[in-house]
Design a protein around this nucleic acid. Structure first.
Lengths: 192, 192
DNA sequence: CGGATCGTTGATCAACTTCAACGGTCGTGG
DNA sequence: CCACGACCGTTGAAGTTGATCAACGATCCG
């Protein structure tokens, strides 16, 4: 059994013995997924938390007009779920789907609880992850409220170039909160 | 010494002995503040995490045109800081200021670290707080990307009526990401 | 009472969306 | 391996939402 990306990631916070690493991993299920596979659907109970070892997931919803809108991407070493619905064990407000073929770990709510009880260190790990994620979300809201869509695109492209190359343009547009048509126009302007 | 709102709040997660409660509180400083007092300034090291016992704080920044834009409010039983800057102990991207006269607890980064080491239960408490906060931030981004400014206002007013009454209108406008003039127009439309 | 601050109004303007149409590309089945 | 269809990116015209600006009233506080 090769060493998991999850264990590597946890070990950026603290060291695990081989036994601990193996036992922690045993709480998770492993999934090898193709492009556009669905992991969670809106309205369904949200009972899984996902960790991306390789590939890319998106958290999205469908608006009144039937358009798919991406709220969050998760690439290597990111955690993803509808966190409110997961914590409260209620139906999800979002869909989760693979953007590329991906390797993903999942853990159910009850297993997650058990894991945290058995390994209190993991509370620290998740506390730190969520603290960062919340801080980043506040920064993102700051950007949304201060940048034009055009500035938004350039900022994002300059700060996350791999991202922009990796994700199809209509998904990027959706994530940035503008239409594919307008994004196309922005890119054109830039060239002249 | 009267029982603190913070202790009450922690005890919604798990029970504390009297001794524990007192000792946990000893990590915090207490502040009684007037309206419009500044607790954190952009560019300054962010070394404090705040808990609102009573009153209201805002996290805001100043945009290119010099306008103050509110990214987050914190009322009773909310935690607030620039979480990214706090965790990394770097200069802040935001200001924090009282909206009303308030009673606030603060804890420094190093004291916070000590507290978490001494009371591992507190890791669980903060993990849960941040998980909720991050989930709520994702929902907020969902709303930003699916509702018009008008719908945004009505949604917010219907779901958080106390909030709308309590906060001055120009701050509410700033938080919702629209201009005071347009908010005024929306409210007028509604009456006819 | 006086000044500053906040909410309102209406006119003008810019940013961004919507819609419809077209061309390119990718992947799938024959 | 080719051909076809579906999907994606692009273009341009027209329409809408919401911002900006300037001015006026109201209210709050010293």
């Amino acid at each position: 059994m090769h060493k998991s990306a999850l264990i590597d990631h946890i070990e950026t916070s603290f060291v695990l013995s081989e036994g601990e690493a193996a036992e922690i991993l045993s709480y998770f299920d492993f999934h090898k997924l193709k492009k556009k596979e669905t992991l969670l659907s809106a309205g369904k109970l949200c009972d899984k938390l996902f960790f991306v070892e390789k590939g890319c997931l998106q958290l999205y919803f469908i608006d009144d007009l039937g358009n798919q809108k991406t709220t969050q991407f998760a690439m290597e070493n990111w955690w993803l779920t509808d966190f409110l619905a997961f914590q409260n064990q209620t139906p999800s407000n979002f869909y989760i789907e693979t953007v590329e073929k991906s390797k993903v770990l999942s853990i159910s709510f009850s297993k997650h609880q058990e894991l945290l009880e058995k390994y209190p260190k993991m509370e620290k790990y998740f506390r730190s992850i969520y603290e960062k994620a919340y801080g980043a979300a506040l920064m993102r809201i700051k950007f949304i409220n201060s940048l034009s869509k055009e500035e938004m695109y350039f900022m994002f492209r300059d700060n996350f170039p791999e991202f922009v190359q990796r994700v199809p343009q209509y998904l990027l547009a959706s994530f940035l909160g503008l239409t594919p048509e307008y994004l196309s126009e922005i890119k054109k302007k830039q060239l002249s």
